[in-house]
Simulated assay, not measured.
Amino acid sequence: MASVTIERTASTFQTCPVNSIYPILKPKSELRKYKNFCIVDSPSKQSWLPIHPSEAVMLALFDGRFSQNQIGEVWAYIYNKPVEDGLEMTDACVKKFSKYLDFRSEPFEFPLHRYNPKDFIYKINDESVYQRIVADPLSGECFPIPIQISISVTQHCNFRCEYCYTTPIGVDGSPKETTKFLDLPKVLSLLEEAAEFGTIFVLITGGEPALFKGWMDVILKILELNMIPVLTTNGSVITRQQLETLAAAGLPEITFSLDAPSPDLHHKITQTHNTFDRVITAIQNSVDVGLHTLVKCVLTTSNYEVIPEFIDFIVGIGVHELAITYMEPGDRNSCATKLSASHICDEYKCLGLCLGDNAKL
């Protein structure tokens, strides 16, 4: 099948009626190819699905050139199947992957050639591995490799958040770093190994990851290796130019830590000075350059009373998604461990809000 050519135009596939539905893969929906499966994902770590290469071929054809019926005929031609099988496959894919698709009533004048279907025509190494993965993709237990790894690139942090479990390194009054941490060549080497395993997600953590010398190289390398970076940052040292570079390279999303809607409360929680405006600027720049922008907030005794105000503030600056989480009690005597039922309602313990197109929910 690898030698098949796809040179026929939409007008040549007319053995069945041409319907008026033109499915198109959304601009932020991505296709990725691995040894035993492909995945389709959108800008959220929770929105990916393992799929068969034949389904990836179908989704690659959703570029605005063909109607739904014509796509079925093209797919049948590629796999040497009856047209009826192609039409059934197209209908099944439209239903299964609808959240990754847009629909038009006429073809694009200039089709969106994002993916070449021929790139996904290949025989997977082990069909049984694919079957196990599809049976229970979200648990990760069926994967023969770690679908997600986490690399802590540094313990340095320029914030001293009052709820943090760890003692920051490199802040005035904090202990000096005694453990030799990873350098850039070692991190890049680990990423190469992870890519060979077939890892999908790479979490970059710290400390504050953006304080690591070469953190941009790390993110770009993850993207180059066809893995998905998951970056959480306080945003205080990230520039617009850096965000533009990451967006252009294909970073799907970025998460910012923010716990307060006002400078005074922010500086109290983070135990910093003059960082609030820098964080908000970074978040707004992220939105402006087209990154799917998330904010993660830790609920504490310091901020639980201003959560409604905080949500209004987040909506106002254009954030796409907000997660408000409750930190379980730990060893450290932090403000996050002192919350009780008298402080908060149960629904505040784990609150995830999707803000859509800047609409308050």
Rank of each mutant, 00 (worst) to 15 (best):
P168S: 00
E162N: 11
V153K: 13
P137M: 05
D183Y: 03
P137L: 14
Y163E: 08
T166N: 13
C157T: 00
T178M: 10
E162S: 08
E162D: 15
S150P: 11
Y165V: 00
I169W: 00
F181A: 02
S152Q: 10
T154H: 09
C157G: 04
V153F: 05
I151E: 02
L184M: 15
I149P: 07
F159Q: 08
P185L: 08
S139G: 13
G173F: 11
Y163R: 03
E141V: 15
K180Q: 06
P137V: 10
K180I: 12
S174D: 13
S152T: 03
D172A: 08
T154G: 10
I151L: 13
F181P: 01
T178G: 10
L138P: 01
P137I: 07
C161N: 10
Y163F: 07
I147W: 13
E141R: 10
I145F: 15
I147T: 11
P137E: 03
C161P: 01
N158V: 01
C142D: 06
I149W: 08
F181E: 14
P144D: 14
Q155L: 07
T167V: 15
I149D: 10
I145T: 07
Y165I: 09
P144C: 11
L182F: 14
E177N: 14
D183V: 06
F143I: 01
K186I: 08
R160M: 01
S152M: 14
T167A: 05
C142I: 03
T178L: 12
G173R: 06
S174M: 12
L182M: 12
V153G: 07
T167L: 06
N158H: 04
P185S: 08
E177F: 08
I147S: 08
G140I: 12
C142Y: 08
K180A: 10
Y165D: 01
S174Q: 08
C164W: 05
T154F: 04
G170V: 10
S152W: 04
R160D: 07
P137K: 07
C161S: 13
T179H: 12
S139N: 12
Y165F: 13
T166W: 00
S139R: 04
T179L: 12
F143H: 04
Q155K: 07
T167Q: 02
K180G: 12
L184V: 08
S174N: 06
H156T: 10
K176C: 06
D183Q: 06
P144M: 10
P185H: 02
G173H: 15
H156Q: 04
V153S: 14
S152R: 06
P168G: 00
V171S: 06
S150D: 13
S152D: 09
Q155M: 13
